[in-house]
Deep mutational scan, measured.
Amino acid sequence: DVEPGKFYKGVVTRIEKYGAFINLNEQVRGLLRPRDMISLRLENLNVGDEIIVQAIDVRPEKREIDFKYIP
């Protein structure tokens, strides 16, 4: 289970104008929005990159997770 405030290693699987989709595993995916990136820009991410993200909002009923990147 993903818990708000905890850090997780994930893989960038898709990049859109509104953010990057990060997979923690095959069943768990969330969104990293540009506003939640500190010292990292969306255009510097590539599909396949491994990054450490912090879960900031977890909505299991909608199967949605918002992430934050903190270097």
Rank of each mutant, 00 (worst) to 15 (best):
D57Q: 15
V58Q: 05
I51C: 04
D36W: 08
G48H: 05
T13D: 06
L32S: 01
L40K: 08
N25Y: 07
E16Q: 09
F21D: 02
Q54L: 15
L32A: 01
Y8R: 00
L40V: 08
L45M: 09
G10D: 00
M37W: 02
R59G: 05
L24H: 01
F21C: 05
V12Y: 02
R63A: 12
I15R: 03
L24I: 13
V11Y: 14
E26Q: 14
G10P: 00
N25E: 06
R41Y: 11
M37F: 03
E43T: 11
T13P: 00
E26G: 13
E3T: 14
I15K: 07
K62Y: 09
L40R: 06
G5P: 03
R33Y: 02
Q27R: 15
E50K: 14
M37L: 06
V11D: 02
V28W: 15
A55H: 01
P4D: 06
Q54E: 07
K68T: 08
D36V: 03
R59N: 09
V2F: 11
Q27V: 13
Y8D: 00
Q27P: 03
I38Q: 12
A20F: 03
G19W: 05
D1W: 15
E64S: 08
Y69H: 06
N46A: 15
V53Y: 01
N46Y: 14
R33H: 05
F7V: 06
E50N: 13
R29Q: 14
R35L: 07
K17C: 09
V58T: 08
A20P: 00
P34T: 10
E26C: 11
T13I: 09
E3P: 05
E61Q: 12
E3L: 14
V47A: 05
Y8K: 00
T13Y: 08
Q54H: 05
P71Q: 08
R35T: 10
E16G: 09
G30A: 03
P71E: 08
L40S: 08
N23K: 13
N23V: 09
E43I: 11
V11N: 06
G19R: 04
V11I: 14
A20V: 10
L24Q: 01
F67W: 10
G19K: 03
R33V: 04
T13F: 07
K68S: 12
E26N: 14
I38K: 10
E61R: 08
F7R: 08
V2H: 04
P60W: 12
P4I: 15
I56H: 08
E26D: 14
N46C: 12
R63L: 13
A55M: 05
E50H: 15
K17V: 14
V12E: 00
E43D: 13
R14I: 07
V58F: 08
P34D: 07
L31G: 01
V47W: 06
I52L: 11
K62C: 08
D36F: 08
N25T: 12
I22N: 00
D66K: 09
K17F: 13
I38R: 11
G5S: 06
D1F: 15
V2R: 02
I15W: 03
G10L: 04
